[in-house]
Design a protein around this nucleic acid. Structure first.
Lengths: 140, 140
DNA sequence: CATATTTAGTAGGACGTCCTACTATCGGAG
DNA sequence: CTCCGATAGTAGGACGTCCTACTAAATATG
């Protein structure tokens, strides 16, 4: 229980630091993750379902995030001609510029955020990986 | 970043498992934590401010949790005679009975939840502790 | 080929978290 | 003793998460 509580507390601290770093760009970490995913995709666009799958969040969470990102002008919804059930979220020029700047801001705090050596970070990652496995998660 | 993402994913998995285990009792992990805190206090009651401080959540989150717990009949609000700014949350008989049963349910999954040996759990805890420290947190 | 199942996305709602702003009360500084 | 800052709690709102339920479209089944 002590471990579970610590995991949650660290998550709370991290998300708080990341959200603060992203606030100047009008982003939260959740929405930033969506932009990064689109940024690294070939065409700069992905079906919403793919986004949910990759980020491991509920489809309705993706709809909500894309609603906000679209309202902000960072992405736009484009119908998928190959499968008319699908909607693609496509990064706009503004969205691409923003995610680049936001990534610099996030990188700056990434080191400070853990206070661990590279070796310790790796150990921690491996332990968390085991925990994910135990819960039926299959980290890539 | 990989580490941060893993922490968040593990938190997501844990909270999901814990909430599922607590659902039969009408509780979420957040509200369960409040009940546990009250259960282990001498008088079975604490000022809302104290609850927020211990659980490290915003005062308004406590108000919200107590609202729900009160509506469920697990706690009741009692004015503090020594300091009329304060409101105490007091565990009801039903609340105390429920937290005991809920604790059994949580304990059952606590082991399975991490998939780590005792030694590994301890290592993980120490690493997370360092991460908390680096963020200005002072684990008790 | 027609129907049934699956998949994609959204609407509406419950919860938990935080923030800002406000009221009430306490306690200390003059 | 009065006023002023600190503390306690709440109201209202923004966000992110999940759930259930629904529609539309693709795919599988008979």
């Amino acid at each position: 229980m002590r471990l579970a509580t610590s995991v949650m507390r660290v998550q709370q601290l991290m998300i708080s630091a990341l959200d603060a770093a992203l606030k100047p760009f009008g982003l939260t970490f959740s929405r930033y993750e969506v932009l990064v995913l689109l940024h690294f995709s070939k065409s700069g666009s992905l079906p919403l379902s793919k986004i949910g799958e990759r980020l491991m969040v509920h489809p309705t969470s993706v709809t909500s995030a894309i609603d906000r990102l679209e309202a902000q002008g960072f992405v736009e919804r484009v119908p998928d001609k190959d499968d008319r059930r699908r909607t693609l979220a496509r990064l706009t020029t503004q969205g691409r510029a923003t995610v680049k700047k936001a990534t610099d801001a996030v990188s700056d705090i990434d080191f400070a955020i853990t206070g661990l050596t590279d070796r310790q970070q790796d150990d921690a990652y491996q332990l968390l990986r085991r925990m994910r496995r135990a819960s039926g998660d299959f980290p890539q």
